[in-house]
């Protein structure tokens, strides 16, 4: 499922990053530690619903929903295609 589909406080492991995104965005994700296998938790949601803050490698990183949707995580309550 997509990273943005996590619920607040829910943890999951990153499966892959959408390969269609530009190299710059992909590199930036890697720089921030969003790599396959990393454990990520949705910790906070902005009062206006977007962006979201994810805890990854002990760091709180804020991503806009549209960007978080480029990351696919484990745990399939429902299968999402992308």
């Amino acid at each position: 499922m997509l990273l943005s589909a996590l619920k607040k406080g829910e943890k999951s492991r990153i499966v892959s990053i959408d390969t269609n995104c530009t190299n710059e965005v992909y590199q930036r994700f890697l720089d921030l530690g969003f790599v396959p296998g990393a454990l990520v938790e949705l910790q906070n949601i902005s009062p206006l619903g977007d962006p979201m803050a994810f805890m990854i490698h002990n760091t709180l990183i804020s991503l806009r929903k549209i960007d978080a949707d480029k990351i696919i995580v484990e745990n399939g309550k429902e299968e999402t295609s992308c």
Binding site: E24, P51, L60, D67
Partner: peptide, 9 residues
């Protein structure tokens, strides 16, 4: 554009 922000401790 693409935007990420670290929320520091």
């Amino acid at each position: 554009s693409f935007f990420t922000l670290e929320l520091p401790p």
